[in-house]
Design a protein around this nucleic acid. Sequence first.
DNA 1: GGCATGACATTGC
DNA 2: AGCAATGCCATGC
Length: 131
Amino acid sequence: MSIDPGEVSGLPALLDIGPLRLAGELRFNPAVYWATCHIPVGRVAAYGDVAAIIGAPRAARQVGYALAALSPDPKDFFGQTVPWWRVIRADGSIALQGDPGRGPLQAALLRGEGVVVVDMRVDMGIHRWRR
DNA sequence: GGCATGACATTGC
DNA sequence: AGCAATGCCATGC
């Protein structure tokens, strides 16, 4: 699978992410950040969706791992803020709901973008981003 | 290398 | 709606 970096201005070309299965985090993580930056405001994507976009359909867990690595504050990726809060579980629930710090933060960020969050859950039928 | 640990997904109760 | 069992695979020890 190939990724067209031209779709997103301001982001560097990452065409060398081809052999993801053989790549270490130096490639996998940037690929995750790159794909996450594609999710439009007001929409959400599942971990598996992001994984599929970068050509690793079975690496959903690793997407979460990569986003966790973004930690603490300026969650930046080549000058861009990676919208990690737009990535949730396939069933619409917020994976960080058990996290007293980031859980409420993620819900607040989503609501700030117009996403309806009820009981730490998003209606995927309405907000799931489909390319 | 083996083993445990996850911001997961799917299936089948 | 839950819940458990599996499969998955990057990381770290």
